[in-house]
């Protein structure tokens, strides 16, 4: 395609002045993509009294921050945010725009894609830039939007070949966050906020938000239980093992859907991606969506009564047996050895 830009943008989500981790992770990924394109990385910061956030993004390799600072943007509301993002994207046609797959990002990104007629892929687990031949046509430097798809065992690579803007959302923890050694900031571009009659169609009456007490991403040891445990009662074994080894409890999506464990403890493509030094995977078959969220653990111990479970394909240690028998044995032996 002609006349495309080489700009990579990351929408920087912040609440009450605190930047969402996923946005910083995306800045780090965006830096790599921008380097690959020989382009520049821009952070888009919308909020009120958030100039310091625009400056903070430089540490993560941002060249230029686009800042819209206005009281109407103090808290996220869909219309003022999407209206301003639509305008920015339409006027500048960045080549790539990345959003965290948060409640905010999942509401905002589709509106912007819809308005700007851009391709959008949700919950990508990998992003790359490559030359692509699609339907016998050659395309240079397309964004490969890679995600597990459709029930498992399949990885789909999605492209946006014929539209100038390529967009993707990514869950927290999927990309790794790091500060760059030599920041290369160019500027903060302040853009004026334009008020609109639609701004107050949604009014926030009350809001409460608390820092999640769960910190799966930072936990060195995680014990993950799956649907294979069968009952909420059996899931207590997961807690017992986590208590014994000093780990955090987590669940597969099926375990979360069954109500065994809360959603903020879900590991996998649509939950959190973790990289602990040790993970126990218990009663989990190991669908690709789940593995995508935990396969980078240093050591994986899988416990499953089905010797054919795919989880054994990525585990370092495999125990074929029932959780009800293996876990108590493990706990007893471990406690004895510590004495």
């Amino acid at each position: 395609m002609e006349n495309v830009t080489k700009e990579v943008w990351v929408f920087v989500e912040q609440h009450d002045g605190k930047v969402a981790d996923v946005s910083l992770e995306l800045l780090s990924k965006g830096r790599k993509l921008a380097d690959r394109l020989n382009g520049i990385l821009k952070a888009v910061v919308l909020g009120y009294n958030v100039k310091n956030i625009a400056e903070e993004t430089f540490k993560y390799g941002v060249n230029s921050a686009i800042l819209i600072d206005h009281p109407s943007l103090e808290k996220y509301r869909p219309l003022p945010f999407s209206r301003m993002m639509n305008k920015l994207v339409n006027e500048n046609k960045p080549r790539i725009v990345l959003f965290g797959a948060t409640v905010v990002g999942r509401g905002l990104a589709p509106r912007v894609a819809s308005n700007t007629v851009s391709g959008l892929t949700a919950d990508c687990t990998e992003l790359q830039i490559k030359d692509v031949t699609y339907l016998k046509k050659d395309y240079k430097d397309l964004l490969l939007q890679i995600r597990p798809a459709f029930g498992g065992n399949i990885i789909a690579t999605i492209i946006t070949p014929d539209n100038p803007v390529q967009m993707a959302t990514v869950r927290e923890g999927v990309m790794e966050m790091y500060e760059v050694e030599t920041p290369n900031p160019i500027s903060i571009e302040e853009v004026e906020y334009i008020e609109d009659s639609t701004d107050d169609l949604i009014k926030i009456v009350e809001q409460y938000r608390e820092e999640s007490k769960v910190n799966l991403k930072g936990a060195p040891i995680i014990v993950v239980g799956g649907y294979g445990l069968g009952t909420k009662e059996n899931f207590k074994l997961i807690q017992a093992l986590a208590d014994a080894v000093g780990g955090e409890v987590a669940g597969s999506r099926a375990a979360v859907d069954a109500g065994f464990v809360d959603h903020d403890r879900q590991v996998g493509q649509t939950g959190v991606t973790v990289r602990p030094k040790l993970i126990f995977s218990i009663g989990i078959s190991g669908a690709i969506q789940h593995r995508a969220g935990m396969q980078e653990a240093n050591k994986i111990i899988a416990i499953n009564s089905d010797p054919e479970a795919p989880i054994f394909g990525i585990a370092h240690y495999g125990i074929v047996g029932k959780a009800e028998e293996v876990i108590p044995k493990f706990i007893d032996l471990y406690k004895n050895k510590l004495k």
């Binding site: 894609a113 492209i159 946006t160 240690y317």
Partner: peptide
């Protein structure tokens, strides 16, 4: 705008698991 470029079955690394 989005097209499916490629669909791959996932091949598990395998072979490294220590059976306990």
């Amino acid at each position: 705008p989005t097209k499916v470029h490629k669909v791959e079955s996932v091949v598990l690394s395998g072979g490294e698991v220590t059976k306990i």
